[in-house]
Design a protein around this nucleic acid. Structure first.
Length: 216
DNA sequence: GACCAGGCACATC
DNA sequence: GATGTGCATGGT
């Protein structure tokens, strides 16, 4: 038997029962997920949606159109997502990469070997572990567990990891003790974000949390 | 007006 | 290697 596997499974079941399927990622295409993954860095989703709407309304959700667009103009379009100058540059870096390495063909990226692709993504300036893993899981449907601040808070609150745990430590916790299924990883991360937003903040509000019965 | 939000790179010690 | 800081809008 495996204590951690049981615990993770129990957490998942409680969250799914409480909240139901989250239907992530809220996007219509892999490219939209990819763009959204950069836009959502340390930012609430509402701003990302506004920024995304601007990009779509200008009919720019296309790798080659985005690449041709001057960075200052891209920055203006994505303003509602915050850090717009920074994110415009990061988006440009990412778009340049997918065009140079995969001819802007996301289906070609899907066929790439996961570990190598992850390394390539991480080599893009502006793409860190969470952004890379979000792209791999939610855009390209690779079985990669996405870690974020909420994952950290929930896992830490429930004694699954120590305060000093790294991104890789946390990712390993889930990947080693859960079946490697895209569907499961997708839903689990989304549920962790949901419960994190509602309860597991810096000052946790554990009353009424679906995971309250499991608290140490 | 303070605090927060689905990070990341870079400077400095 | 650890720790601190800039990036910025918009909602609560």
């Amino acid at each position: 038997m495996n204590i951690l596997a049981d615990k993770l499974s129990e957490i998942y079941d409680l969250l799914l029962e409480a909240y139901g399927p989250q239907h992530w990622w809220p996007a219509e295409s892999p490219l939209e997920v990819l763009v959204g993954a950069v836009l959502t860095q340390n930012t609430n989703w509402q701003g990302v949606e506004k920024a995304m709407t601007n990009v779509k309304n200008h009919n720019l959700l296309d790798p080659h159109k985005l690449q041709a667009l001057p960075i200052v103009e891209l920055a203006q379009l994505i303003k509602p997502a915050g850090y717009f100058n920074l994110k415009a540059r990061r988006l440009k870096n990412l778009i340049d990469f997918i065009i140079e390495a995969y001819s802007g063909d996301l289906e070609a990226m899907e066929r790439a070997e996961t570990d190598q692709l992850r390394e390539e993504l991480l080599a893009v300036n502006g793409v860190g572990p969470e952004t890379a893993d979000s792209i791999l899981l939610y855009a390209l449907e690779k079985p990669v567990f996405v870690v974020d601040t909420y994952t950290y808070r929930v896992a830490s609150r429930h004694g699954l990891i120590g305060k000093e745990a790294s991104y890789d430590d946390l990712q390993e916790l889930f990947t080693l003790h859960l079946p490697s299924e895209v569907r499961l990883f997708n839903e689990y991360h989304a549920l962790l974000v949901r419960v994190g937003k509602l309860h597991c903040k810096r000052k946790p509000r554990c009353q009424g949390c679906p995971l309250e019965p499991l608290l140490p």
